[in-house]
Design a protein around this nucleic acid. Structure first.
Lengths: 337, 337
DNA sequence: CACCATCGTCGATACGCATCGATAATTCGA
DNA sequence: TCGAATTATCGATGCGTATCGACGATGGTG
């Protein structure tokens, strides 16, 4: 592998000159620049990352802490990961994976060894054991998700409260007076990610404001639980029933249950779910969805991180950004009256 | 951040001694070792990765090239990524993400900058533009998937041919004389990943050996295509029909189509699909599946990579490893006669 | 024409660790 | 008891880059 010294020799200049051509931190004459650039091209020179990190104290790598195989909803996690990685490249950074099975020690490790300049944490829980560590690390940390106490932390997430409000508002506008919200599956509820509460709170707020009734019913990945919840929902209204089902795994089960009862989506009953546009369109009856904008959340997380890295101000930062959600009505909801 | 020099000072030894305590490459007396370890503990010293890489010419980082958001089957990709990352940690390595939108240039970049010691490529296609680059890089490369010409390359993948054979064999044993294989969705077929051919070939081989008929029918993510394929399948047999549906997205559509025709899985018709055990069990009629062992493939890919890195022999390696697949019969297939 | 600011480049040094050769301390055999 | 063979440790050097101070060349000003 050629080094900057080789380049310097080939171009007939000093090594420091090569460095300045690359960084642009000092003026270089057009002639010299050309010579150096030609030599770089010639030798296919690429700067050594380790040496660069050692000298500049910047690795240009961001650590991404991914959840510990939650078995379900892996697809949506991958969307975050993928977008985060390519956005990072746009800011001339790379992504190092940190799996959550290393726990908080993993964070200390990658920061301590100075493998990366900052950390992005996914799936932040209400009382997350990683938070005290995150606060004590002397590198920027961006959380995707909002813990109970976000003080001293930089957080970003979809605006779940707005999402809940919009779902109820639109269903109310379609004439539903009783709206059933099916909880996430127990595995998610147990994790105490507080977007659940924010979403449910949003539905309550809208319900109060609009004078409609919102029912919170248990979710589950077995048909019995869902069937029971549907029973309760049907018993509670004389009009057309409406369901909000933010958990992707539960959607299929609910749809099957409803059609088993002879109810037709968009005709007798409204259902708002959550899925990628592609998947939503693929359904027998295209599903109306609330889009939680994972790609946009990912992009902004990286952007915030890179801004923090540039401004490299040592002081503790604190901010909270909510990404607006979007409802798309397809065919599974009644038309507004 | 403390350095090894700080540790040396605290322990009253030379910096090189600290280094030898850490690496074990020279004998150290018990007394000195204790002193140094105490100082390390005391200062919470962690070696600087950049300096280490610079001096040792090893980064202990593996580049993982992930597919460019194929929109579908992201869940299964995440399983690879997750297992690869944690397995790498077991071998004391880290994973750097390289997104495929950088293309072959991305590979040159991370290797040229010496950000990582080797590369793992996912979703290798038949004629992959990255292969010539992979062969020319002077670092170990492990492919997940098998290109048309694997010469000079180290490949690992699930044994799709065996998978195809086993599916046909078991369905034949259950009394089916005509077996329909539904292709992957067009998006996958177009990508020319050759596991498709290997799987289909496996079904043909078994069919010939057992004297049963295998029909290859088009797949698709729309109900019309699937419905047509089912029509053809039903028209081709007087006995109970049997389906093999390796594409996860298509499974739901097929199941719905069949039940719409009044056919009951495991009673009137056999279906073998592909899904994680958890998901398979969740179905109304638990799905018999062919398990392509993504976790095992991932683990072995990392293991092979780490072996290559240790033996750091420069010469071009070449190997091909196939991971046996496993059929699990649940309730969607007829009992063997 | 002398003087000073600016521009462009060079040389030297630091970054933190691994590693090699050398040296001091110890042990062993004859 | 002396030298040889170990054993344990130190000092010095190199890895490749960024960056700082210095210096010669250039151009403008009075």
């Amino acid at each position: 592998m050629p080094t900057s010294k080789d380049v310097a020799q080939a171009a007939g200049v000093a090594q420091s000159t090569v460095s300045y051509v690359l960084s642009g931190k000092r003026p270089i004459s057009e002639k010299t620049r050309k010579k150096v650039e030609a030599a770089i091209e010639q030798l296919t020179y690429q700067p050594n990352a380790g040496a660069r990190a050692l000298a500049s104290r910047k690795t240009r790598v961001i650590g991404l802490v991914i959840p510990f195989i939650p078995e379900l909803e892996m697809g949506s996690i991958m969307e975050f990961v993928s977008v985060i990685a390519s956005t990072a490249r746009q800011f001339d950074h790379d992504i190092l994976l940190v799996t959550d099975d290393e726990g908080a020690a993993g964070l200390r490790r990658v920061v301590g060894q100075q493998i990366c300049d900052g950390l992005i944490l996914m799936q932040v829980e209400d009382e997350d054991e990683r938070l005290p560590v995150a606060r004590s690390l002397h590198v920027p940390v961006v959380l995707i998700g909002i813990p109970r106490d976000p003080s001293g932390l930089v957080c970003i997430d979809a605006d779940f409260e707005m999402a809940g409000e919009h779902c109820v508002r639109d269903l109310a506008a379609a004439g539903h007076s009783v709206i059933s919200v099916i909880d996430w599956q127990p595995a998610v509820m147990d994790r105490h990610v507080n977007y659940v509460d924010r979403f449910l709170h949003g539905t309550d707020v809208a319900a109060k404001a609009l004078g409609v009734t919102v029912l919170h019913l248990p979710g589950g990945t077995d048909r019995a639980t869902i069937s029971e919840s549907v029973d309760k929902a049907l018993a509670s209204t004389t009009g057309n029933p409406a369901f909000i089902v933010p958990d992707r795994t539960i959607q299929d089960i609910l749809r099957r249950d409803l059609s088993g009862r002879g109810l037709t989506l968009g005709l007798d009953v409204s259902v708002i779910g959550s899925a990628s546009p592609t998947l939503a369109e693929l359904q027998p009856i295209p599903l109306s969805t609330i889009d939680l904008r994972p790609a946009e959340v990912s992009r902004r997380a990286v952007k915030i991180m890179c801004q923090l890295l540039e401004s490299d101000s040592q002081g503790p930062h604190e901010s909270l950004e909510l990404v607006p959600t979007v409802i798309t009505h397809r065919s599974s909801t009644l038309r507004p009256q």
